[in-house]
Every structure is written in C-alpha cells, then in structure tokens.
Simulated assay, not measured.
Amino acid sequence: MENIIETVDLTKRYSKAVALDSVSIHVRQGEIYGLIGKNGAGKSTLFKTMMGLAPYSSGEIKLFGSKSNKEIEHARQRMGFMMGAHFFPYLSARENLEYFRKLKGIADKAEVDRVLKLVEMDKVKKKFKSFSLGMKQRVSIANALMGYPDIVVLDEPINGLDPQGIADFRRIVQKLNKENKMTFLISSHILGELELMATRFGFIHDGKLIEEIDRETIRNKTEEKVIVKTNDIEKATYVLEQKFPNIEYQVNGDKELVISKMVEKTDEIASLLVSKELKLFKLVAQEISIQEYYLEMITKGGTDHV
C-alpha cells in the first residue's frame, strides 16, 4: 500500500529541548492511522511541521510522494487539517465555514451545509463565542472535512465531546473512510477511542516514535487472557496448579486471577472451580487492549522488548 505521508528522521529542537527525535512515520493510503501518545509526547509538533505551520531542524517530509518545497505546498492542498478551534468568535458556525470555504477555493456553496450536517451543527444559529468546547470541536472537524480532502489530519479531535459526540465522530470517520476512501491521521491521548476506529497505530513517547503497527499484528503479537474472581483466591490457585502444572498467572490489584495462554480452556477452568465448590464472581476471556500494549511499549522501550 502506498505511503501518502512519510517523514524521514524528522527532528525538531527548541533550544536545548528536543520535541521530535528522528521520527519516521508512514501513513498509507486508505487507512485510519491513530497516533497515540500522552500530552507533550510530540503529536502536535509532528502535525505542525507536517502541515508547514512550524519549521523543523532536520530530516525530510514527503507528501503524496512529493519532496520539494513547491511540490509539498501543492500537496498540502489535498489535505484537511484540524488543530485547535481557531474561528471568528462573532460569527456563527456557518459564517465561519463560509469564510474558510472561500479561503480554500472551494466553489461548491453546498459544501458548508454538507459538512455541518455531518457533525450535526447545521441548525445552530448562535455565535461561535457562545459554543461549548464540544461544539467548537465539531466545527473544527467540519472545517477539516470540507472539499473532500484525500487525507484528513486531526489533532485531539474528541477532546470536549460527550459520549454521544464521540460515537458520532467515530461513525463519521469510518463512513468516510469506507465510502470515500478517505485517509485519516488522528492523534489522541484517549487510547480507548482510537482503539475502536484505527486500523493502524503509531506510538510516540518523549518525541520518539517507538513503533508503528497494524491492529491485526498487535492481536497476533499479544495473547488473550482469562480473568477469574472467586470467593477464595488461594484455593483457586491451588486447584488450578494441581490441574494445570504449567499454568502462568498473576493476581492483580483487584484480587483477580489473570491467566495467560489458556483462553481455549475457559469453560474447563469454570467447570473445575465450580466442582471444587468455589463461587465465581467473574470469569471472562479478554484481549489485551491498545492501552495495555502502549504502556508495555513505553515501559520496556520499544519493539525489541515486546
């Protein structure tokens, strides 16, 4: 699959501080790429350099295969971008987007109404200054989607959205990705939400890109686990050790038994514990979350340690 965004050893220094440290990112056409990292990890700085909003110290940026400054400037016209909510406070959502439609050179006047309907802001008449944070985020997302860009870059787009707003955003992204073949590059520190929509992930920590990995590869590299909560954890561990001498487990902070590599024996585990007169308060097979994978990555220092 073709890379439509690529950076090569991209580095950004602020005096003695290094905001980006030799970052090489690859966003492929047609995917929903989730850039994951805590606040201050370098996500926004990467986006600013990528979009030409901030200079970089060294390295290279390629957009749609273009490398020269002139070609990259032209390529940026094929991109929608959201970073913060920078609009005129005394204008309505529609009036703000009408201004940006003209600024972007989009001839179709119906485009403003289309994107406002997508984010359910088409009936809002009041001025931008009176909007909630969630409403401002919706207008920012609508602005990024104007003109059917080939790729949409969104920096922390779900900040301030309520649960319904987050679900609606996810639906919009997945619909445009599937039906319009639109590529998305989305950053967030809310890992659980990106986990539900992204097809590929980049983990960034302290300015370094630790790993890029497909969702399916994460599933192949990690193991499911069985989580058991009983009325007698000591008896449960003894019973299981007698039945399964090679069992691998640990007890978490909630006094639950977390068993590795035995998802296929979940029913057998349940039957065994019940037969020994243990009460089962919880027994679930659980796949490792993106958040757990990310935390393991930054703790152990990269792919060589996973």
Rank of each mutant, 00 (worst) to 15 (best):
G134A: 02
I158D: 11
D214S: 14
E98T: 08
V228P: 07
E195Q: 12
L196Y: 01
F201M: 01
S44P: 11
G134Y: 02
V306Y: 13
E179F: 07
F100I: 10
V115H: 02
K109F: 06
N69F: 13
S92Y: 09
K136N: 05
K62T: 10
E216G: 00
E224T: 00
D150H: 12
V153M: 12
K265L: 07
E60T: 05
K62F: 06
E31R: 13
Q174M: 14
A285V: 08
E223V: 14
L154G: 10
L20C: 08
E223P: 09
E264Q: 15
Y14H: 04
F87N: 09
L272C: 06
I233V: 08
S132H: 06
M50K: 11
P245D: 01
L283H: 04
E31S: 15
K279N: 13
K255G: 10
E2P: 15
F131S: 03
G59E: 09
K102C: 13
G80M: 04
M51C: 08
A54M: 14
V153D: 10
S66R: 15
K276P: 07
E248V: 14
V263G: 12
S275R: 08
Q77S: 14
N252L: 00
S57G: 10
A144E: 12
L240H: 04
N220L: 11
F131R: 07
H26F: 12
R215S: 08
Y238V: 08
I141G: 03
G302Y: 06
F64K: 03
R13E: 10
E111I: 09
L10T: 07
G52H: 06
I259W: 03
S187M: 08
K125E: 12
L46S: 13
L161V: 04
D267I: 15
K265G: 02
L97P: 00
T303I: 15
P149Y: 06
D9H: 14
L154D: 06
D214W: 08
S140F: 05
L272K: 03
S58R: 09
L272D: 06
V18R: 11
R13C: 09
N177T: 05
L194E: 08
S132W: 09
K178F: 10
K104Y: 13
N159L: 04
K48S: 11
G165N: 07
E212N: 03
E95C: 07
H305L: 14
R200V: 13
E268F: 02
F244M: 06
D113E: 13
I218C: 02
E296H: 12
E241Y: 06
I210L: 13
K109T: 14
N252W: 02
F47V: 15
K243N: 06
F128C: 07
N180G: 04
V152E: 09
E268H: 09
D304P: 10
I204Q: 05
A167P: 00
I4C: 03
L194V: 00
G202F: 02
I166V: 13
A93Y: 03
K43A: 13
N231W: 06
Q164H: 09
K300F: 01
K279D: 14
I233W: 00
G202D: 00
